[in-house]
């Protein structure tokens, strides 16, 4: 008669955590930064259709790294959660804290009870009336929640990038400033050979507190090029504000209608990838 091997709970949890951490570190990083008029999200993502950054509700956005199918499922659940809550009560009663709790419970339950933990790390962010009332929650694969301020990096070489970001980020930066910082940090590598990311390789979105109802807007490549391009052309000192104002102007204009639906070709490409 064969005896099952004894595995200590410590070992079991450690193995699961290692498994999840490895999966998450394989993908590319997402950075989340506060700026004077809101919260910016940026990542390297060549796909126009498979997003890592999305709108959840009027003032709430979602960013994720790890396995696409797993975080996409959580994103849809979050949209359903927020819409149901807004329908049952009022739009003002939907907040990031409630959603972060629901995600944390889900991630925690899956981590302890199911055979495989979810290989994802999430940020749920809500933009407030002032930068002080902004909320950024970072959720790990095991359900732990951290209330973050200022800036967050998840996935990839998160720790190295986080140090680089911490050195340059300061409160009250404008949009052009944080976008440039984010792109510089995303392009940096551990061995010091920095890459320059083009707007086409980037997925950038903002929660803009100055917008009336739905604060979430994606920054399309031309606008990004403008935000980044002024940097090189006009130098640090005087280029800063011009670009930010232009971008704010363009943001205030009519939104671009939704992008074309996910094509099958695009979906096939990335199904097995860690995006």
């Amino acid at each position: 008669m064969s005896m099952p091997f004894y595995v200590s709970p410590e070992q079991l949890m450690k193995d699961r955590a290692d498994y999840a951490r490895k999966g998450i570190a394989r993908g590319r990083s997402v950075v989340v930064l506060q700026y004077d008029d809101g919260i910016a999200f940026a990542t390297e993502n060549p796909s126009r259709a498979l997003h890592k950054i999305s709108e959840i509700y009027d003032r709430i956005a979602f960013a994720a790294v790890g396995k696409y199918n797993e975080f996409e499922n959580l994103r849809v659940a979050g949209v359903r959660y927020a819409d149901l809550r807004g329908y049952s009560y009022d739009r003002a009663d939907v907040n990031a804290r409630g959603l972060a709790n629901a995600y944390a419970q889900t991630l925690g339950t899956v981590f302890t009870t199911e055979s495989k933990p979810l290989e994802v790390e999430l940020v749920v962010a809500e933009v407030g009336v002032t930068p002080e009332t902004d909320q950024i929650y970072r959720l790990s694969y095991d359900g732990s929640v951290a209330d973050e301020h200022g800036h967050v990096v998840m996935g990839g070489q998160a720790e190295t990038l986080s140090v680089a970001l911490g050195e340059s980020w300061e409160p009250g930066m404008d949009l052009a400033g944080v976008v440039r910082l984010a792109v510089r940090v995303l392009g940096s590598t551990a061995d010091g050979e920095d890459r320059t990311l083009s707007p086409q390789q980037l997925e950038v979105a903002v929660l803009d507190r100055t917008r009336p109802r739905r604060a979430f807007r994606r920054l399309p490549a031309p606008l990004l090029a403008e935000l980044l391009g002024r940097d090189q052309a006009a130098g640090e000192a005087d280029g800063r504000h011009g670009a930010a104002e232009d971008a704010a102007q363009e943001l205030a204009e009519r939104p671009v209608p939704g992008e074309p639906a996910t094509t099958d070709a695009g979906a096939d490409e990335a199904t097995d990838e860690q995006v």
């Binding site: 259709a49 997003h51 999305s54 709108e55 959840i56 849809v76 949209v79 359903r80 819409d83 807004g86 329908y87 209608p257 939704g258 992008e259 074309p260 639906a261 996910t262």
Partner: peptide
């Protein structure tokens, strides 16, 4: 009206298109 508005917004958020 409320349900219809929500239905359209929900679709837009989930599918990323109108």
């Amino acid at each position: 009206v409320r349900l219809f508005q929500l239905e359209l917004e929900h679709y837009e958020k989930i599918e990323g298109t109108l």
